[in-house]
Amino acid sequence: MVTTPSRPDPRPAVTMPVGRGKHAHYSYRDFFRFNRDQGTIIDWNNTQNLLLSEDFIVGLQTGLEREVGDASAAVMYTIGMDWGTRDAKHFSKWYEREYGVGVKQSNLLFLLETWWWPFTAQGWGKWEVETESKQKGFLFINLFDSMVARTLGDVGKPVCHLYAGLFAGFFTAMTSRELGCIEIQCYAMGETYCKFLLGGQERIDAANFWITEGASAREIEQRLHQL
């Protein structure tokens, strides 16, 4: 499921059946409002949703590769980055509306869980953030059931560039620090889940170099801790 949060929507917001005090609102029937008259799917945060098939993802990826070759990874990353940057603004607004406090006043891990929950409800997969290395300026994100990797299957290389860009864009906007993100392990490489490294560009470049040398995610983690 894909969202387009930045486009102004002239249609009236859908009234939710329960009070805004209910924060556990991610079940299918709570989170989405199917408006048959207008042919729209509006979610709890008043965002327009689109239902897309796996064929769409395959078509997008294949078409992009045919058009721009290896640069398709960079294109997907840039699209994700732009999406994450815009979503950070959208999220800050709905988070404040939902919880009555600003994002800067909140517990970081709670904030991150709250940001990702709509994505989980929309089918982008579950995640887990490893913040143990936060003081060193980087962290890891584990993604289970990536929509892109699951669809493309075992292709022997990382494919979740859209997610990497999304994480980079969101965290850069939220922290006001230039951060990059790279997928160091992917379901599409036969692994059980995807793993992303988020941090300053120098660390991302180093990880990229180690990946081209054939290093595993575990080896990259060890090397980063030694830096």
């Binding site: 924060h23 556990a24 991610y26 079940s27 299918y28 891990l109 709670f110 991150l112 869980e113 929950w117």
Partner: peptide, 16 residues
């Protein structure tokens, strides 16, 4: 599960 536990599980985890 759908209405509460999937969500609360991640929230309790986030607060450790």
């Amino acid at each position: 599960r759908d209405k509460l536990l999937y969500w609360l599980e991640t929230i309790l985890k986030s607060f450790k």
